[in-house]
Amino acid sequence: MTSPLEQKKIRITGPSVVTANRTWDGAVVYRTAKHGWSTELSDSAIVTTSDEARALLAEATADDLGAVGPYIAPVELKDGGKVKPGNLREHIRAKGVTIDLQVPA
């Protein structure tokens, strides 16, 4: 899964969101259309062009106090408007680890 560190030059080829980690606790968050952050992928602002993606990323980056390390991540749009993570890395960030931790979550 391509690290976001290597993704900065990538032009988007499909629906995308901007994601980051919330500053105070590190939780995974998504940039919303209301210029805030949400822990729910379904709340995220979806962009479909590279210009839109860059603009959303610039806005998110400016909110350094709200979240850390924003980057553009691919998503899949399902029937009924459901948003799914676009790769395994984002799936793990959205849904949690893929392993049985053998401890209470």
């Binding site: 590190g26 850390v68 960030r93 949690g96």
Partner: peptide
């Protein structure tokens, strides 16, 4: 402090930012 300013300070105290959390 911005994240850029803070990052080196947190790293000096063993704090990374990973996928889900610090």
């Amino acid at each position: 402090l911005t994240e850029d300013e803070f990052k080196i300070l947190r790293l000096q105290n063993g704090v990374y930012l990973q996928l889900h959390a610090y």
